[in-house]
């Protein structure tokens, strides 16, 4: 009768009141599930707390991008009115969202945490030119929040945690440094607290994925 057991399984699914028949669908546009903290969405180009841009035009992100969708050109900072601290800044910065696969390798590659991702994924364009985001569109506004373009459907919380991925990582990938701050401050937010690491879970306060990064008590603080 082994052949027939499967039929019992599928038949039991018809009884919606039971645990096995539970409907798992989320009616997407009407109801939305909370996004994970490290969700990869549309990029932003961050700025330092004093308003300077973080990007130094090094093109590492463009080099690492597997989809070849970043175009960067650096230029020397004008001495009297520098755009970024240091010698050079990102003069041209474009991301083609028809190609980006949101792998976050660019975020990983960036030496200055200039490029990070927000939580926004509901954006659609009606022409190809809109799909190529220029630097003006990517760079955060004066309050440190991403710019909200007309065809983007932002929801509360999408524009926070833009650098969640950066803060989730131990510096140099060493567990010893877990929870230690090794990143610079951001315009509008200051130095963000580290995400609570695995060590914190061992210490007893259970994992709470939605809470990570808010509470500010990292593993070795």
């Amino acid at each position: 009768m082994g052949y027939l057991r499967g039929f019992a399984v599928t038949l039991r699914k018809l009884f919606k009141g039971t645990e096995t028949g539970r409907v798992v669908t989320t009616q997407y546009p009407d109801e939305k599930r909370p996004k994970p903290v490290r969700f990869h969405g549309r990029h932003v180009l961050n700025r330092y707390e004093d308003g300077m841009e973080k990007c130094i035009g090094c093109e590492l992100c463009a080099g690492v991008c597997p989809a070849r969708c970043i175009y960067v050109r650096g230029a020397d900072n004008p001495p009297d009115d520098p755009v970024s601290p240091g010698e050079r800044f990102g003069y041209v910065y474009e991301i083609n969202y028809l190609r980006c696969i949101h792998c976050d390798l660019c975020v990983e590659a960036c030496p200055t945490e200039a490029i990070t991702e927000s939580k926004l994924f509901e954006f659609s364009f009606t022409n190809r030119a809109d799909a190529i985001y220029t630097k003006d569109e990517l760079v955060v506004g004066d309050d440190g929040r991403p710019q909200q373009l007309p065809w983007e459907d932002w929801h509360p919380g999408d524009d926070e945690h833009t650098s969640a991925w950066v803060r989730a990582t131990s510096p140099s990938g060493r567990a010893d440094y877990e929870g230690q701050v090794a990143w610079s401050g951001e315009l509008g937010y200051g130095i963000r607290p580290p995400e609570r690491g695995q060590a914190a879970d061992e210490e007893g306060d259970g994992p709470d994925p939605d809470d990570r990064g808010h509470d500010g008590h990292g593993g070795h603080q």
Partner: peptide
Amino acid sequence: LISDMQNRI
């Protein structure tokens, strides 16, 4: 029906 049998709507 097949949705019902696959926990869908």
